[in-house]
């Protein structure tokens, strides 16, 4: 999820038909520069080096999204029903994209989903399989203290900065998956939005940190030095 306004100017994006390491390359219709989806950065053309601003979003099931946001709108699918996906057989196969893997790395199954975080050139992947058992993770990446939260039922995830008002908090599940609690102040936080809902820090908001949900092979091809949480520790 990216902002498509850059320095006050609106851009629209199309599908270039090109890939970098098996991941979508977009182009903008205004300058025809190429942009790597995974990097969020222009890699060729007039806009080279420009970074897109990441915006917070969630990937989760329709039923749980609607429960949280009953007033939500939903993209009109043009009459299509159900969740059949042109990539269904691709998801199930063991193949890693089309141009092969750039870096071979069998720490995880090729198509395992991971939540990837990169901060200060340090990359960490949090596999869904690890998050299943440990849905609230207090960690540090590139000297940033972060919190990873995962809801196994809706598969929603979010990564937050654990520093609030110059204090680094550590969290554990409370009425999970709805809420988490920090050990330092006992404040209760909404695990989905990061908003403090009860206790001394009520009214504060945990800040989202950029994260990417992707297949393992896509993440490690862009971040070959990545740590895999729960595997490498």
């Amino acid at each position: 999820m990216y902002a498509r306004e850059i320095n006050g100017k609106e851009y629209t994006f199309g599908v270039s038909g090109k890939l970098i390491r098996n991941v979508l390359v977009m182009y903008d219709r205004q300058t025809e520069s190429y942009w790597s989806q995974l990097l969020g950065e222009a890699v060729e053309g007039e806009m080279i080096g420009t970074k897109l601003e990441f915006l917070p979003s969630w990937m989760m099931t329709w039923s749980e999204w609607k429960e949280k946001y009953p007033d939500t709108l939903a993209l009109d699918k043009g009459g299509r029903r159900g969740a059949r996906d042109v990539y269904d057989s691709y998801y199930r196969s063991g193949s890693a994209g089309v141009v092969g893997e750039t870096f071979s790395d069998d720490r995880l199954y090729t198509k395992e989903f991971v939540i990837g975080v990169e901060l200060n050139d340090k990359a960490v992947a949090y596999p869904f399989s690890v998050l299943n058992d440990e849905p609230v993770i207090n960690d540090s990446v590139g000297s940033h203290d972060i919190l990873v939260v995962f809801d196994v039922n809706s598969v929603a995830s979010a990564v937050f900065d654990r520093r609030v008002a110059d204090q680094v908090l550590t969290f554990e599940p409370a009425d999970f998956p709805a809420t988490i609690v920090d050990n330092e102040t006992g404040t209760v936080w909404d695990a989905f939005t990061g908003e403090a809902v009860a206790g001394p820090l009520t009214g504060n908001q945990l800040v989202r940190v950029k994260s990417t949900t992707s297949f393992w092979f896509g993440w490690k091809d862009f971040h070959p030095d990545t740590v895999v949480y729960g595997i490498d520790d």
Partner: peptide, 8 residues
């Protein structure tokens, strides 16, 4: 690849 992404 999903770009389920977020930031500050």
């Amino acid at each position: 690849l999903a770009a389920c992404t977020s930031q500050s």
